[in-house]
């Protein structure tokens, strides 16, 4: 299964507005995307399109997360989502 790692760039972490923007993008990705903290087992990964799951993940700025997806277009979707996580969304 394709996977990517990304470092959270938003100042407030994956909370509030950055979480909303990311969840929405993950929901529109066309494939099911999961997210977990680096080092956590893949079967405990959370639904990346769920803002509530993202909030419980509690990823802060500088934390490294793993995104996974399967199926057609998974690679492109993951690349786009990594870019989003590595942008400081609080600055916009």
């Amino acid at each position: 299964m394709p996977e990517r790692i990304a470092t959270i760039a938003s100042r407030s972490g994956l909370h509030a507005r950055p979480a909303a923007l990311f969840a929405e993008a993950a929901g529109n990705a066309g494939v099911d995307v999961t997210i977990s903290m680096q080092g956590e087992p893949a079967d405990e990964a959370l639904d990346a399109a769920s803002i509530l799951s993202l909030m419980t993940l509690g990823a802060a700025k500088g934390d490294v997360v793993v995104l996974r997806a399967d199926g057609d277009g998974a690679d492109q979707a993951l690349d786009a989502l990594v870019t989003l996580l590595e942008t400081d969304l609080d600055a916009e």
């Binding site: 507005r17 979480a19 909303a20 769920s50 509530l52």
Partner: peptide, 16 residues
């Protein structure tokens, strides 16, 4: 706006 957008996403959140 930010609060409403986040709340809208919660309404169809998979966890819920």
């Amino acid at each position: 706006k930010a609060v409403l957008e986040a709340t809208a996403l919660m309404a169809k959140d998979t966890m819920l």
